[in-house]
Simulated scan of single mutants.
Amino acid sequence: MSSNGQIIYGNLNWSTTISGIDNRYFIVRDWPIANGREFTTQEINSGAKVAIIGERLRSELFGMSEAIGQTIRVKNFNVSVVGILEAKGQDARGEDQDDVIFLPIKTVRNKITGIDSTNPKSVRFIQVSAYDGEDMDYIESEMSRLLRQRMRIPVDGDDMFRIRNVSEMIATRAETMQVFNTLLAWVASVSLVVGGIGIMNIMLVSVTERTREIGLRMAVGAKPSDILKQFLIESIVLCGLGGGVGVLIAYLFVFLGNNYGIGAGGVINTDVVLLSIGFSAFIGVFFGYYPALKASKLEPIDALRYE
């Protein structure tokens, strides 16, 4: 069973999800305790005022202080923190799984959600975990059959419940992300081509403006390969600097997102940074080769006489 509410510790408070469970929940979710302990059988059966909290809630309320054994206020009653869960991160929907507090299910039923007079032991949802290699379609059909039997639903009656398969949700999200990534790749490709054409035009203008300089260099012994290398290096440096500026902007947005909630935040991977700068340099080589080749093929006499 679950609800939302304010959690208060000292002069700090935090709004989070309050869930009522028993210890089997941690087995199904494969969610180990990082510090402290699980609920005892007596605490679960009696509806004791104890809590296990997620890493996000711990950091918001306690910071660097010790959380185990501390008393916090959940809505209108106090509970003692007995355990802290390992950080789990975001789920398939992008929600923070660590922003949560768990109490014995009887405690939540008695103190928060209230008791259903027609069915005092009713719950709002059940989480099920399948063993590796099991047939999910068969498991879903058996769950549906059992729930219909327990809830005494007639053969021709509609289900009074919904079964959600997380693997299907993840697969749908992966397909959506694949479409988004493909679209993003096309946009990035067009941007690179447009940027590359811009670099090529800049280099062609540079070759034209520096024609006499090229002729002078050739007159004092520079080889065509030297001229080619000079303009290629300039093109590579120009594109590399552009890639570096882009990486710095990405770092800025990630920093603002992670620390101040501006934007989505994220993680910067060193391999991706190196790949992006390297790809920028490749664009410089690809689109800078023609202007550099044009510069290297100039005749020294014609270049010196150029106005």
Rank of each mutant, 00 (worst) to 15 (best):
S3W: 09
Q6D: 01
I21W: 02
N23E: 13
F26G: 08
I27C: 02
D30Q: 13
P32R: 06
I33H: 05
R37H: 12
S46C: 09
R56I: 03
L57M: 04
G69L: 07
T71V: 06
N78S: 13
V82M: 04
E86H: 11
E86I: 08
A92R: 15
E95M: 15
E95N: 15
I105D: 15
K106F: 14
R109F: 13
N110H: 15
T113L: 15
S117P: 12
S122P: 04
D135I: 03
M136P: 04
S144R: 05
L146R: 05
V155E: 13
D159M: 04
M160F: 10
E175H: 11
M177K: 09
N181E: 09
W186R: 09
W186H: 09
G196C: 07
I199M: 03
M203G: 02
M203W: 08
L204W: 02
E213V: 12
I214F: 01
M218R: 02
A222L: 06
A222S: 11
P224N: 06
P224Y: 03
I227W: 00
I227T: 03
K229V: 07
E234P: 01
L256G: 07
L256C: 10
V273F: 09
S276M: 10
I277L: 14
A281M: 15
V285R: 00
F287Q: 02
P291D: 10
A295F: 05
K297A: 09
P300L: 04
I301D: 10
Y306C: 03
Y306D: 08
